[in-house]
Design a protein around this nucleic acid. Structure first.
Ligand SMILES: [Mn+2]
Ligand SMILES: [Mn+2]
Ligand SMILES: [Mn+2]
Ligand SMILES: [Mn+2]
Lengths: 158, 158
DNA sequence: GATAATTGTTAGCCATGGCTAAACTGTTTA
DNA sequence: TAAACAGTTTAGCCATGGCTAACAATTATC
């Protein structure tokens, strides 16, 4: 491991606050991010389908495509995957519906999303920015952090 | 647009706090996330190479592979991309170096990363969790939010 | 009821980011 | 100095998530 042959940096930087984390911990950071990326899109689809069902009573592929700014072909393909994963049921040319499992995922995702969004607003971020940031951040916030965010938001509200 | 044919939801949910955002805004959320994903991994590589150079004096492919928990083949392929993007210079079987542009990106990424990490700690998140969350969150935090996070951290420090 | 418009599906393309296996280069050590 | 080892590269595989183009089905309009 070349990384350990040279213990002292020859540059003038020395200690500048943050050292490199231990290898195992560092590796775990990236692994966790990769895992999040695997489920991220699935969650967004399921969450959106749930939201469309709640707010509009139906979830059509065309609406998903518009809201996600993605082609209908992309949505169609994705729906097949969601079907295979047992998250949605779909008859051709009909509205989508969520399975039990899909509904569970939708609820969890929506609640996570809400906690992050409300937290950002409580922190002083304007609504439109908060919405954009929350859409990405939500998938990378641990349960621990989520709890802390929630507490912060509640305290702020008083 | 079927989404607008049915204005009133037939379910009992009615208004429950958060309505669906307007289509254009909603679409922009997802687009922004997709854009972030395109540069995310590149930034992490460049940032890590910069950190290895600073702390160890050299950045070897093998070390990157270990730290990222990824195969050496994956790293090798990625280095070719970084090269093509003009972010690193590399002679075969030698340590990597960052170009001017690569150094700029590394600095920006590191500083972003630090702001998010320190913010999470200031918020009360334990170090190890903060590190994991920051690794993913950093790519989805807007400049506006970043500024607010920085202010928060400084206030907390007093 | 025929035609037009909308909606959905399929086929096939591409880039990205993983992987394993095999070959190659450079360094260390017997 | 030759062999062994560590590090690097290449080839080729796969899944994911985009796209366009062509076609099919449903729904709306005349
Ligand atoms: Mn979400
Ligand atoms: Mn999201
Ligand atoms: Mn980073
Ligand atoms: Mn990162």
């Amino acid at each position: 491991m070349s990384e350990y042959q040279q213990q002292h940096s020859p540059t003038a930087y020395g200690q500048d606050g943050d050292a490199l984390p231990p290898v195992e911990q560092h590796a775990q950071q990236y692994e966790t991010v990769r895992n999040a990326h695997e489920t991220e899109l699935i969650e967004d689809y399921v969450e959106l389908i749930g939201d469309l069902l709640r707010h509009r009573g139906e979830a059509r592929a065309a609406d998903i495509a518009t809201r996600m700014a993605v082609s209908q072909a992309t949505v169609s393909k994705m729906i097949r995957r969601l079907n295979e994963l047992g998250l949605v049921t779909s008859k051709p040319y009909r509205s989508l519906f969520l399975t039990e499992e899909g509904q569970k995922m939708a609820e969890i995702s929506r609640s996570r999303h809400d906690v992050v969004l409300h937290f950002l607003r409580a922190l002083g971020v304007d609504d439109s920015t908060a919405r954009i940031d929350a859409e990405g951040m939500e998938h990378h916030v641990s349960d621990k952090t989520l709890t802390i965010m929630q507490r912060f938001t509640e305290q702020q509200r008083t």
